[in-house]
Amino acid sequence: MDTQPPTFSVVAPVYNEEQLIAEFCRRVIAALEPLGEPFELILVNDGCRDRSPDIMRELHQRDPRIKVINFSRNFGHQIAITAGTDYATGRAVIVIDSDLQDPPEVIPDLIARWREGYQVVYGVREERQGETWFKKTTAAIFYRLIVRITNVNIPVDTGDFRLMDRKVVDALKRMREHHRFMRGLSAWVGFRQTGVLYRRHARAAGTTKYPLRKMLRFALDGITSFSYLPLQLATYVGFIVAAISIIFLFVVFVMRLSNPAATEPAFYGQASTLASVLFLGAVQLISLGIIGEYVGRIYDEVKGRPLYIVAETLGIDETAATSAGNMRTTHKEQSPVIE
């Protein structure tokens, strides 16, 4: 077994990918071996419910460069990326999904730009194969919206597929917020950044792990992590409603003076009053909901719970395990607890 420290660490979250995980590892290794430098492939088992954990164990036994982190349960895609980067020891860390939509063959292109001096090299999707019109449209709107409402230059049409220099990874390891938007955090830290164009492929097997509900939650995490605009919008709407109310009262007052005999015009009736009350109530509830989203995130942070719990690691260096020790159940390997 090669004890030379890895130059590259590839981090891949895995959730129910039994049909693809072996092929994914084969293609990653095939992309990296011609470079002639040591590397490691870290698979993060995010609470898989299929045969993925058994397959990953077999892959590790056949090739020690394939290392495995088993979570005690499902903690989510962004947390799995965080755990992988916590344990990665390479000078450069490449994050890629294990569903083969992001082709591993692009990794050498990312590395080439890193050798030119760039410290974050992200993949830019020039084409998204196998995705619906709805998903493509909403993704395009989201990326352009978040650029406009935040002061962080988050590249558009990008995902989590990227290479990060060790300095960037060390900076990210100091950020422990629970509602994580990793592509935003990697932009926030700064450093020299550039993109590499590639074509995102359709899924070869399995189903998407990001249905509409998770996509909406992910978008909300991204917006609330980097922008106060929703809170400011609640204030703006309050001022607008107040202004409309004052104008309405002024109109009613003028019409009363101009036609005092009209005791009950149509807009003085109960219908207009009920509509006004319902409108104001809706504005108040929406504003409270926005505030509640931010308060809920504060509550999650002050509880101080770890981002994840590791049940077992396979092939992970003890130095890396010790550096992430506050997130492990133990420094020794033990039986996995997969829910």
Rank of each mutant, 00 (worst) to 15 (best):
P211D: 12
Q193G: 07
C48L: 05
T322C: 03
A30P: 00
I316C: 12
V252N: 07
F24R: 05
T273M: 08
G159L: 04
P155W: 03
K135P: 00
T313H: 01
D170M: 08
E301A: 15
A261T: 10
A242I: 01
N45T: 03
P6K: 09
L288S: 09
Q19V: 04
L216W: 02
G238F: 01
T313I: 00
D63H: 05
V189Q: 08
V147R: 11
G130L: 09
G206I: 05
S323E: 15
F226P: 00
T224L: 14
L35A: 11
V168G: 05
Y268R: 09
S287I: 01
T207Y: 07
G159F: 02
E58Q: 14
R148G: 12
W114R: 07
W114H: 13
E33I: 08
K214P: 00
A171F: 01
Q19N: 13
T329H: 09
E18Y: 06
F8W: 11
T89R: 15
R51D: 15
L257Q: 15
D160F: 04
Q129S: 12
E127L: 13
E116N: 08
S245F: 01
A92D: 06
D50A: 09
S225I: 01
S186A: 15
R62G: 04
S323Y: 05
S258C: 11
Y299D: 11
Q232D: 10
R180C: 03
F181R: 02
T330C: 14
A187L: 10
V124Y: 11
A320D: 12
P265R: 05
R91Q: 14
T207R: 14
F248A: 15
K303C: 10
A88E: 07
N153S: 12
N153H: 09
Y228H: 04
H77D: 10
E40G: 03
R203Q: 11
Y228P: 02
P306M: 06
G123Q: 02
Y143K: 08
T150G: 07
I149F: 06
V283T: 07
I244Q: 13
Y299K: 14
I141T: 01
N153P: 00
E17R: 12
R57F: 02
A243L: 13
F239S: 13
P34Y: 07
D221W: 06
P5C: 02
A22G: 06
R62Q: 14
E58L: 10
G84K: 04
